[in-house]
Design a protein around this nucleic acid. Structure first.
Length: 852
DNA sequence: GCAAGGTC
C-alpha cells in the first residue's frame, strides 16, 4: 500500500480524485480521520490529510506554567538544562551579576527557581498537538510499503511534512519515503509531481522550524516579562510577538501622529445654486474655487462680495467621461478589506468564510492568488449561481456572451484559485452574516466578468459677484459591473442641465471657519492591508493577530470601527521601543526571512540561527530587567488610565472600573479606597466606556456619566448613580390585577425600579397573596395604556425605544408570544416569578374575559 | 496564563 500524506483534508481528496485511474476514490475513516482509498495500476493507494502542523514546539514541562509557582522557570536542584549550542560556541553564563528577578534563585520546597533569562537559553521540545491524526497516521504507516509526503509546496509545508515523517519513522523506521511537489490541483500537475518524486528538503524544514523556535522564545520571554513586571492578576496577560508587536506599533504610531497633530484654521465659502425658477430638488451645492482660504481676511473680503448675491452666471460647463475598471478577483486580504468596509471584522470574515467553504458554497478561503486559473470553468460557475434570484439577470447577460473574460489581479499563484462561489446559496438557509459574505463573494465574482462602468463627471463654474465658484457631480452613464457590485462606491450626484451664459439663482451663502483634521485611524481592512504590505503575518494569521490585540486590551473596545490603541497598548510600545526595539518593527520579520533563506540554502544551520537570536534577546532582556520597576509602574499607570470612567464627586480621585474579587462582577470604585468608599453598580451585559467633556459629569447629581454598549444594540449614555433623579422613575400604575379581582379583592399592578440592580418589574400591591409579577425591559420610558391583552388579560404597556414606541403585553408567557419566543429573542425575561403567574393566569384570563 | 503558523 502506498500512503500519501497531505497538509489538509481538501488536498487529500483532490489528489485522490486526480490520481484515481478506475472509478472514484472511496472515502473512509481511520479513527475519525477521513482518508481516501483508490487503486493505481493495481496498487492500493491511501491519501490522508493532516490539519496543518501536527507537532507544536514547547519548553520542557518544568519551565511551563505551574499552578503554585506561576511562570517561574523551575529546574530541580538548580540544575540547568542545556539548550542546543552549536559547536565551538559557549552558552553565556546566566548566574552573572544580574539582579534577582521573579524570585530569582529562591528555594521552594527543594526546587530552585532560576531567573527569567534562563528561559531564553532553554531547550525546546516538539510535542504532539493533533493526537487523533497522529494515531491515524501511524496506523496507516505501519501498513505502508512506501510513503509520499504531499504537503503544500512552501516552507511551512516542508516542516509539516518533516514532522509527519518523524511520526511515520516512529512506527516504520525503514519504509521508503519521498516527496511530491505540486502547486496546483490539475491532472497534469499532480501526475507530473508523482512521476517525478524527490527527497524531502530537510534544510527547508529546518528553516521553518527555526522560525517556530525563534517566535516561541521571543514571544514567551517577552510575554512573561511584561505580564510579571506588574502582575495584573488572572486574565491579564500582556503579550508580545514578532508580528503582533510591530502591528500594535503601527496603530500606536498613527495615534501619536494624531496626538501631535496641530490643527490649522481655514475658511470656506459655500452656498446653493439652482437654475432660474427651478424647485428645491434642482438645487446644488457650490463652493468658492479658492477652496480652503488660509487667510481669514481674504476669505472675509471674498465673502463680503457674495454675501447678499441672489444670482450668478455660468462661466463654463465641462463634461468628462471616465471609465472605472471592474474589480480584481478576491484573495484573502482583499476579501477581508471589502468585508471590513461592510462591517464584518477580518477574524469574523474568516470564521464565516470557513463555514461557507465547509458547506460547499465558496472555494478555499486562504489564498494569495488573484488570477483565475485556466482550469476554472467561468461559464459553469456563472450557471451554478444563476439559480440565486438576485443574480439571475446579471448571470443571463453574462451567459449570453460568446466569451467570458475576467479581470486579473497583481498576485498570481497556482496553488488555489481566487475566492469564488462554487454553488448557489439559499439566503433563507444562511445566517444573515453568512449571506452577507456569500453575497459579497458572489457579486464580486460576477463583477470580475462584467464590463467597466462609465461615469460622466460634470464641472460647472459660476461667477457670483466677481468671485469664482464651482460645483461638480458624477453620474453613472453605463452601469457595467456596478449593476451587480454596488459595494464601496460613492453616491451619484446629478447636476441640472446648464449651459455657459445661463443665469442661476444663488442663496444661503456662508462663510465657515474649519480646521484641518489629523490623519485617520486605521480601519480593520486598512490594517490588514498595511500588515501585508510590510510583510507582517500571513493570509492565515493576520485576522487572528488583530483579534488578539483586542483580547489583551492593547486596542480599545471590540473589533468594529476605527482602531484606537489603549493607554496600555501605547505604554507597551514605549517600553519595548526603548529596551527591545527589534521586536517593535517589521525588520525582525525581514531579518528572520533572510536567516531562513540561509538555513534553507545550507549556508547556516538551524542551531546557529536560533543561537544568534537567543543571544540578541538575552541582551535586550538584560536591559528590560534592569528597568523592571519603571516599566511596571508605567504599565500599571496605563491600566488605571484605561479603567478610568470619571472623577469621584466625594474626594476628587479617579473612579475606575473594578472587578469584584468575590463575584468577579464589574463595578465602579474610587481609587481613594479605603479612605473613600464611593462605589457604583455597572449595568450587566454591556461594555462600559467613559465620556468626555461636559457629557462626562451628570448635571443633576455630579456622578460620572458613562457610555454603555450592549451586544449588537445601540449604545446609550447614562448616569452611574442609580439614585440620581435622571435614573429614578416614580412608581407607575399600569393596570389592575386580574388574579386578585378573581379572588374578590382589589390589587393594583405597579411598575417599580430596583434601586440596587436598576431592573424594572411590575408587581401587584397584593403580591404576598397573589404572587403576580412581570419583568420589564431595562430601558425606555414607560407608559400605561389602561388596556389588557386579549390573549391573557395581562396589562398592555408602551415602552418608548430609540426606534419609536413599542406596545407590549407584559406577560412573557402570553400565548401571543409563543412564535417569537421559539425564534429566540427575549426569552431571558421569562424568570421564575413570571412562571409562577402562568398557572394562575389561565384561570384569571377566563374570569376577566367573562367579566366583559 | 507564552508566539506564529498551519488547519476544522
Amino acid at each position: 500500500m502506498k500512503l500519501v500524506i497531505t497538509e489538509k483534508n481538501d488536498a487529500a481528496q483532490q489528489i485522490a480524485r486526480l490520481l484515481c485511474s478506475v472509478g472514484k476514490p472511496k472515502a473512509d475513516k481511520v479513527y475519525n480521520t477521513p482518508v481516501y482509498r483508490f487503486t493505481v495500476d493495481g496498487e492500493e493507494w491511501v491519501t490522508i490529510g493532516l490539519r496543518g502542523h501536527i507537532l507544536a514546539p514547547d519548553f520542557p514541562t518544568e519551565l511551563k506554567f505551574d499552578k503554585k509557582l506561576g511562570w517561574y522557570a523551575v529546574s530541580q536542584d538548580g540544575e540547568m538544562l542545556p539548550a542546543d549550542v552549536p559547536d565551538g560556541l559557549a552558552r553565556p553564563p546566566y548566574e552573572s551579576k544580574r539582579k534577582p528577578f521573579l524570585k530569582d534563585g529562591i528555594d521552594i520546597k527543594g526546587w530552585k527557581v532560576p531567573s527569567l533569562p534562563y528561559l531564553v537559553w532553554a531547550p525546546i521540545e516538539k510535542l504532539p498537538a493533533e493526537k487523533e491524526i497522529i494515531r491515524a497516521l501511524k496506523n496507516l504507516a505501519k501498513k505502508a510499503d512506501s510513503v509520499v509526503i504531499g504537503t503544500d509546496f512552501d516552507r511551512e509545508g516542508e516542516l509539516i511534512g518533516s514532522d509527519a515523517l518523524a511520526m511515520v519513522r516512529d512506527v516504520a523506521p525503514d519504509v521508503p519515503v519521498s516527496r511530491a511537489r505540486y502547486s496546483a490541483f490539475t491532472k497534469a500537475e499532480i501526475d507530473h509531481a508523482f512521476n517525478n518524486l524527490v527527497e524531502l528538503d530537510q534544510n527547508l524544514a529546518d528553516a521553518g522550524e527555526s522560525r517556530q523556535y525563534i517566535d516561541l522564545i521571543w514571544g514567551a520571554a517577552l510575554t512573561r516579562y511584561l505580564t510579571m513586571a506588574k502582575f495584573g492578576g488572572f486574565g491579564n496577560v500582556r503579550s508580545a510577538g514578532r508580528v503582533q508587536t510591530p502591528t500594535l506599533a503601527l496603530v500606536v504610531e498613527r495615534e501619536r501622529e494624531r496626538l501631535a497633530f496641530k490643527p490649522e484654521d481655514y475658511w470656506v465659502i459655500s452656498g446653493e445654486a439652482a437654475p432660474q425658477g427651478a424647485g428645491e430638488e434642482d438645487a446644488f451645492k457650490i463652493s468658492h474655487s479658492a477652496g480652503r482660504f488660509a487667510d481669514e481676511q481674504a476669505a472675509a473680503t471674498a465673502f463680503a462680495h457674495v454675501e447678499g448675491a441672489s444670482t450668478g452666471t455660468v462661466t463654463s460647463v465641462v463634461k468628462k467621461s471616465r471609465t472605472q475598471r471592474p474589480p480584481t478577483p478576491f484573495n484573502t486580504t482583499s476579501l477581508q478589506a471589502a468585508a471590513a468596509a461592510e462591517g464584518i471584522s477580518p477574524a469574523r470574515t474568516m470564521r464565516i468564510a470557513e463555514s461557507l467553504y465547509m458547506d460547499g458554497l465558496i472555494s478555499y478561503p486562504r489564498v494569495d492568488n488573484t488570477v483565475y486559473p485556466r482550469s476554472l470553468d467561468l461559464r459553469a460557475t456563472v450557471k451554478a449561481i444563476s439559480g440565486v434570484p438576485q443574480y439571475a439577470p446579471a448571470c443571463r447577460e453574462l451567459l449570453s456572451r460568446e466569451k467570458l473574460t475576467a479581470t486579473r489581479g497583481k498576485t498570481e499563484t497556482t496553488d488555489h484559485p481566487p475566492i469564488y462561489p462554487t454553488a448557489a446559496a439559499d439566503p433563507t438557509k444562511l445566517e444573515p452574516a453568512q449571506w452577507k459574505l456569500y453575497n459579497l463573494i458572489a457579486r464580486r465574482f460576477l463583477a470580475t466578468l462584467s464590463d467597466p462602468a462609465v461615469i460622466e463627471g460634470t464641472k460647472i463654474e459660476i461667477d457670483v459677484a466677481g468671485e469664482p465658484f464651482q460645483a461638480s457631480g458624477d453620474v453613472l452613464k453605463v452601469a457595467g459591473f456596478r449593476a451587480v457590485y454596488p459595494f464601496g462606491l460613492k453616491k451619484d450626484e446629478q447636476l441640472p442641465a446648464l449651459e455657459q451664459g445661463d443665469t442661476v439663482d444663488v442663496r444661503d451663502m456662508q462663510l465657515e471657519a474649519k480646521q484641518t483634521e489629523p490623519p485617520a485611524r486605521y480601519s480593520q481592512g486598512k490594517l490588514v492591508q498595511e500588515m501585508e504590505k510590510r510583510g507582517l503575518g500571513t493570509k492565515s494569521t493576520r485576522a487572528s493577530i488583530i483579534e488578539r490585540l483586542y483580547q489583551v486590551k492593547y486596542f480599545k473596545g471590540t473589533p468594529s470601527g476605527p482602531i484606537e490603541p489603549s493607554q496600555l497598548g501605547m505604554a507597551i510600545i514605549d517600553a519595548l521601543h526603548e529596551f527591545a526595539p527589534r521586536i517593535t518593527t517589521p525588520d525582525m520579520t525581514s531579518e528572520l526571512e533572510e536567516d531562513m533563506t540561509h538555513v534553507a540554502e545550507g549556508a547556516d544551520t538551524q542551531d546557529q540561527v536560533v543561537y544568534h537570536s537567543r543571544a540578541l534577546l538575552a541582551g535586550m532582556l538584560d536591559a528590560l530587567i534592569e528597568h523592571k520597576d519603571d516599566l511596571g509602574d508605567a504599565i500599571s499607570d496605563a491600566v488605571t488610565a484605561d479603567a478610568k470612567v470619571g472623577t469621584c464627586p466625594k474626594c476628587g480621585k479617579d473612579l475606575v472600573m473594578k472587578t469584584s474579587a468575590k463575584t468577579r462582577g464589574s463595578f465602579i470604585g474610587c481609587m481613594g479606597w479605603p479612605d473613600c468608599d464611593v462605589t457604583y453598580p455597572v449595568p450587566s451585559g454591556v461594555r462600559v466606556s467613559p465620556l468626555e467633556g461636559e457629557a462626562a459629569v451628570c448635571p443633576e447629581c455630579g456622578a460620572p456619566r458613562i457610555k454603555c454598549q450592549p451586544f449588537r444594540q445601540k449604545a446609550y449614555e447614562v448616569c452611574v448613580n442609580p439614585k440620581c433623579p435622571t435614573n429614578y422613575e416614580p412608581d407607575l400604575k399600569v393596570g389592575e390585577c386580574s388574579v386578585c379581582a378573581a379572588a374578590g379583592r382589589h390589587g393594583d399592578l405597579i411598575a417599580h425600579k430596583s434601586e440596587k440592580s436598576g431592573k424594572r418589574f411590575i408587581r401587584c400591591t397584593n403580591y404576598e397573596e397573589c404572587g403576580v409579577s412581570y419583568p420589564l425591559p431595562g430601558r425606555g420610558k414607560l407608559e400605561a395604556t389602561g388596556e389588557v391583552c386579549e390573549h391573557c388579560g395581562a396589562p398592555i404597556v408602551v415602552v418608548q425605544t430609540a426606534r419609536g414606541p413599542w406596545r407590549i403585553c407584559v406577560n412573557m408567557d402570553c400565548p401571543s408570544k409563543e412564535k417569537k419566543a421559539a425564534s429566540g429573542r427575549g426569552r431571558k425575561g421569562a424568570s421564575s416569578s413570571t412562571k409562577k403567574t402562568t398557572a394562575k393566569k389561565s384561570t384569571s384570563t377566563k374570569k376577566s374575559s367573562s367579566k366583559k
